[in-house]
Design a protein around this nucleic acid. Structure first.
Length: 512
RNA sequence: GGCGGGGUAGCUCAGCUGGUUAGAGCACAGGAUUCAUAACCCUGAGGCCGCGGGUUCAAGUCCCGCCCCCGCCA
């Protein structure tokens, strides 16, 4: 089967990770785990974007060298990945040496193509902020001096800068959008990008001389690369380009990013790659934001919640499940303690958890703790299994569309069907009248739980593993290839244990 | 201001080219059941389908106007 190279955006570690970081990396982890389980050769890249003015400023504020600052901050991001059970194949840092080398190689390639030239950048500059501001952002003070929105004085400044001939790529980009409309998703984002490009593209300033925390521009020691130039290139770095063999890890199949950075990924990045003559990523997906009770988290609102704290409260897998299932991928979504708790109880404890528990405990009691014997199947049995077997294709389609929510919808439709099947067949009653038939019913229910657990793995790896353990499914039989197999009657099973406890809101804790 | 998307049950949302009593999940109420995590299963209640016009035998679905929300751009 095909290769799958998927990335998150790299996080800017000028502050600690928040739920937005967690959301993106969890969704991408689902995509990667799904592809791996489906037998695809998968590479999952995430990491941190460590250069640029804001990091330099934050480091100075903390009174430490920038590298020391990011070395410390990065630990929080890596810890988040560990805590959330993220399965990245590489955690890239833009301060990694191989990355700097690839950035410089890419720069030189673009320069050789004639797309990089030296010119001057002019604008209103605040020395205090080390930043340029647009004229319409400025405020005129009583004494006539011009002030930035931050209240610092700005002066008209001319700075030498390298520019990228983005203007050259208007037509190629429009052609890309026309020929490959799935390049940017959701579709409304593509439309926005097209509208933006149709208005005309200005050349892009891609170097700075006002600070030095960045990748040095080759042959131009006073300049460091513009952070986005540096950051976007991270996707190419693991391929080792331009060294031999890079084609094995480039192009990326999918960049999963926030809706706020679509422009950089859908315009600048492909233009850079076109300039360098490199293949383009196949798809860029801009997801929405996760809001706490409809409000963006901010320090001033005091509603910042660290992902690790949420994982502590609800459990890693329930948190992952909530974010993947409850929010249409691509749309904004909300969360609160009640909504997560409600979802956990309804879907995990009541539906799937209870299904597994009732099935396994009946087997434990009535079938000597072994997978019950199968036997002649009725139409209802066939219908049940046929329905469950459609899950895999539905989930694959959802994966291709980057819609974890839809994949989980499809799985849970089957969870419900199996609960209905058990109620209708009532194996607890059959046990007294027709024990052989009761065994067959339980066999079918357990087999369905096995298939469901297989497909749940990418969303909730730990919990799914516990379910599969309880069905005595060998580790080698946990890829999607195992959909073709069946539980083997007579296999001894461990004592069943609940996997998804109900969530009870702590009475004394205020709801955040 | 320009372009685009949207306003449908308490909440989150489905409703393709107009056509029987507008759907799902959650939450809520009742029933049934007792294998199971006060769970499962069944039933029910709950909608001027943003507002006002219009086209049509027929409009949530098309057209016009207005109000509100969101996104991109300026």
């Amino acid at each position: 089967m095909s290769r799958f190279f998927v990335t998150t955006a790299i996080s800017y570690p000028n502050g600690r990770p928040h739920i937005g970081h967690a959301y993106e990396v969890i969704a991408t982890d689902w995509l990667a785990r799904f592809a791996r389980a489906d037998g695809r050769e998968t590479f999952f890249l995430t990491g941190t974007d460590e250069h640029g003015l804001k990091i330099a400023q934050a480091a100075r504020k903390a009174d430490v060298p920038p590298k020391q600052f990011v070395d410390e901050m990065v630990l929080h991001f890596k810890a988040m990945c560990d805590r959330l059970d993220i399965s990245q194949d590489r955690f890239i840092r833009t301060t990694d040496e191989d990355h700097k080398a690839v950035c410089q190689a890419l720069w030189q390639k673009m320069e050789a193509a004639g797309d990089i030239y030296l010119d001057r950048y002019e604008g209103w500059y605040s020395v205090r902020d080390e930043a340029y501001y647009d004229a319409d952002e400025l405020v005129v003070a009583d004494d006539g001096t011009k002030l930035a929105p931050t209240g610092t004085e700005v002066v008209w400044t001319v700075e030498e800068s390298w520019f990228f001939r983005l203007s050259r790529f208007q037509e190629p980009l429009l052609r890309l959008y026309a020929e490959q409309p799935e390049f940017v998703q959701p579709t409304n984002r593509l439309n926005e990008m097209r509208a933006f490009v149709e208005r005309g593209l200005k050349d892009l300033s891609i170097s700075r001389t006002s600070f030095d925390w960045g990748v040095p521009v080759p042959g131009s020691p006073d300049h460091v690369m513009y952070v986005w130039m540096d950051a976007l290139t991270n996707y190419l770095t693991p391929s080792g380009w331009p060294a031999a063999g890079w084609e094995a890890k480039w192009p990326a199949d999918l960049h999963v990013i926030g809706k706020d950075v679509v422009r950089f990924h859908a315009i600048y990045w492909p233009a850079f790659l076109m300039s360098a003559g490199l293949p383009l990523p196949r798809k860029v997906f801009g997801h929405g934001f996760v809001l706490n009770r409809g409000a963006k988290m901010s320090k001033s609102l005091g509603n910042i919640v660290e992902p690790g704290a949420l994982a502590d409260t609800f459990g890693v897998d329930p948190l992952r499940y909530y974010l993947l299932r409850a929010i249409q991928f691509g749309q904004d979504g909300e969360w609160s303690h009640e909504t997560i708790g409600r979802r956990i109880n309804a879907d995990l404890a009541n539906d799937l958890g209870n299904l597994a528990q009732r099935t396994l405990s009946m087997i434990a009691k009535a079938c000597e703790g072994r997978v019950p014997p199968d036997g002649p199947a009725t139409d209802a049995d066939h219908a049940l299994l046929a329905g469950v077997s459609t899950m895999l294709e539905e989930a694959r389609a959802a994966h291709a569309d980057v819609r974890p929510d839809l994949a989980l919808d499809a799985i849970w439709a089957r969870v419900s069907a199996v609960n209905g099947y058990l109620n209708e067949m009532a194996p607890w009653a059959l046990r007294k009248t027709d024990p052989a038939r009761a065994d067959i019913v339980l066999y079918h229910a357990a087999e369905c739980v096995r298939q469901i657990a297989l497909l749940v793995q990418p969303a909730m790896p730990g919990s799914a593993a516990r379910l599969l353990d309880q069905l005595a499914v060998a580790p080698k039989d946990r890829s999607f290839a195992a959909f073709g197999k069946r539980l083997v009657p007579g296999t001894p099973l461990p004592a069943p244990q609940g996997v998804f406890p109900r969530w009870v809101e702590p009475a004394d804790e205020p709801d955040v």
